[in-house]
Every structure is written in structure tokens, then in C-alpha cells.
């Protein structure tokens, strides 16, 4: 009898269990369904046999150690990376056919902030999906972009070159751009990284508002203690889906230990987080 946590993980995530939270929903109602997804960089798998089906209208956190494939998961959902096996469906259609319903917040470090654009230019990019190749943004797009900037309290900075913003402000510009996409499923890669406490709580408020509007939000998150409070459901990821379910069920010492393996520093953090849960 083996006690390898990875094998346990495969067992718990494979088969019909992965569909546990979307039972009774039609394909078009399921925002995201992943089947047997494997992604490798230079022949080294980063994601291996991932199965996942997430229900609509939920705020879902993706947590796992560094190198667990969290960003890779987000990028593969959008079809940004070549996959070795498996498929991804968005609202019942292959991912590349339904990108119009996805809003994306990439990691802040993924772009050059010295790029010669101002805040409004960046948010306007969110409208390009709806505009298509040849049309230019019109009055309606400008007012939507302005409204999105207003939602993240960045309207006073609309004309500012993006290098002249703080980290939290840059993150909010990315959020506004995703809002301007007017999507149903939002994929956010570490939107809380390098953000001050006030911005973090205003972002969380915004995510709750989105959820109330029926949107589904998938957030890559690396801070365990806050993960417990922020999300309705959690995906525990370490190359495979270790577990996926309501935060209360999933955020347990055993499951987190499985996810984080033998990483001691993180384990102590986990222990703290669990102690907080019990307190």
C-alpha cells in the first residue's frame, strides 16, 4: 500500500469526482471544464492530467507552492501554451472559440511598465475583443473604459503614463482593463501581489461585486492565511489538482500538507493558517 500523496491526489481528482460541483448543469452553463490537461516545458511536465469543472458564480482561489503550475494553468485555460494532451472548454465550447467570454488579469511583472501608453490606453485594450480587427474604439467604448476606471478608483489617473503609478495602482489598471472586457469568466494571476492592504481590500470588494453579478472568478493566490477568507472554493494545485471544493472542506491541514509536500517553511505557515481557522 502506497502513501504517496501524489497518487492519492490523482485518485481524488480523477474520474467523475472532478464533475462533483457541476452536476445537473448543462455544458453551456459550466464556465470552465478541463479534461486530462498536460502541459510541459522542455519535456518537463508542469501540469499533469488535470481534470476540473467549476460551477458558475463562484469566487475560486488557486493555491499551491511555487512551481505548482498555477500560472501555467491560467495560461493553458486561455490556450496561450502548447498542450501535450487534454482539452479546455469554456461555457461548453473549445477554449479558443470562446475567448470572448474570458477576462484576463496577467501578472503585473509580465509587461514593461515603461511602455509609452497612459492608463486610459491600457484600459481601452479591454474593449478590443468586442471591437474586432478593423473597428476603432468609439464613444461607447470610451465611456465603458471610464466607468471601469471609476470602479477601481483610478479615473483621476487616466492620463498618467503607466510607469508613474504605484504597484497597487498598476494592478488596478489591469483590473479595470479586464472589467472593460465585460466577460463572464475572469482569470486573474496574482492580482494581490505587491499591493498595499487598502488596495487589497478594495480589490476583494470588487471581486465580490462581480460574483454578485453572476460572474465566475478564478484567482491565483499565494497567501494562505487570506486564502481562507477570500474565496468560496479553492483549487489545491501541485502539478495535479490535489483537491477542489468549498474552502471549508478543502482548507484542512492534511490536504494542504499534501499540496505543499515537504516544504517546511510553508508547512509552518499552513499550521498557522489552520490554527487560525480553528480559533
Amino acid at each position: 500500500m502506497t502513501s504517496d500523496p501524489n497518487i492519492e491526489a490523482v485518485r481524488s481528482s480523477s474520474g467523475p469526482l472532478s464533475m462533483r460541483w457541476t452536476q445537473g448543469l448543462s455544458d453551456a452553463e459550466i464556465p470552465l471544464e478541463i479534461h486530462d490537461l498536460t502541459v510541459a516545458y522542455h519535456h518537463k511536465p508542469v501540469l499533469y492530467g488535470v481534470d476540473l469543472a467549476i460551477p458558475p458564480g463562484k469566487l475560486i482561489g488557486v493555491i499551491g507552492p511555487n512551481g505548482a503550475g498555477k500560472s501555467t494553468l491560467i495560461k493553458s485555460i486561455m490556450g496561450l501554451l502548447p498542450t501535450d494532451s487534454g482539452w479546455v472548454r469554456l461555457f461548453g465550447k473549445p477554449n479558443k472559440k470562446n475567448l470572448g467570454r474570458v477576462g484576463y488579469v496577467p501578472q503585473r511583472e509580465s509587461v514593461d511598465w515603461d511602455f509609452p501608453v497612459n492608463v486610459m490606453d491600457v484600459v481601452m485594450m479591454g474593449r478590443y475583443g468586442k471591437l474586432g480587427l478593423f473597428r476603432r474604439p468609439g464613444k461607447k467604448d470610451r465611456s465603458i473604459a471610464a466607468a471601469c476606471l471609476e470602479k477601481v478608483h483610478m479615473m483621476p489617473f487616466a492620463d498618467r503614463q503607466i510607469a508613474n503609478l504605484s504597484g497597487g495602482q498598476q494592478q488596478r489598471v489591469f483590473l479595470a482593463r479586464a472589467l472593460a472586457q465585460e466577460s463572464d469568466l475572469y482569470l486573474m494571476d496574482e492580482p494581490f501581489a505587491g499591493v498595499d492592504a487598502a488596495t487589497e481590500s478594495s480589490i476583494i470588494d470588487l471581486l465580490h461585486t462581480l460574483r454578485k453579478e453572476g460572474k465566475t472568478i478564478l484567482v491565483v493566490h499565494h497567501d494562505l492565511p487570506t486564502a481562507r477568507n477570500y474565496f468560496d472554493m479553492l483549487i489545491l494545485l501541485n502539478m495535479r489538482v490535489v483537491d477542489f471544493g468549498p474552502t471549508k472542506e478543502v482548507f484542512t491541514y492534511e490536504k494542504l500538507q499534501k499540496t505543499y509536500g515537504g516544504r517546511l517553511t510553508i508547512l509552518s505557515e499552513v499550521a498557522d493558517a489552520v490554527r487560525q481557522t480553528k480559533a
Partner: peptide, 22 residues
């Protein structure tokens, strides 16, 4: 001239450009 907005988006953030179907 025609594809200015696409060139801008691809240059600034290729991942996002993909997401808005460029």
C-alpha cells in the same frame, strides 16, 4: 494605420492580446 490598436496591444502585452482574440 489599419492595425495600430492590434500592434499596440501585441507589443504591450501579447498574452492579453491573445485574450481579446487578436
Amino acid at each position: 494605420w489599419i492595425f495600430y490598436k492590434e500592434l499596440l496591444t501585441v507589443s504591450f502585452d501579447a498574452g492579453f492580446a491573445h485574450c481579446v482574440k487578436i
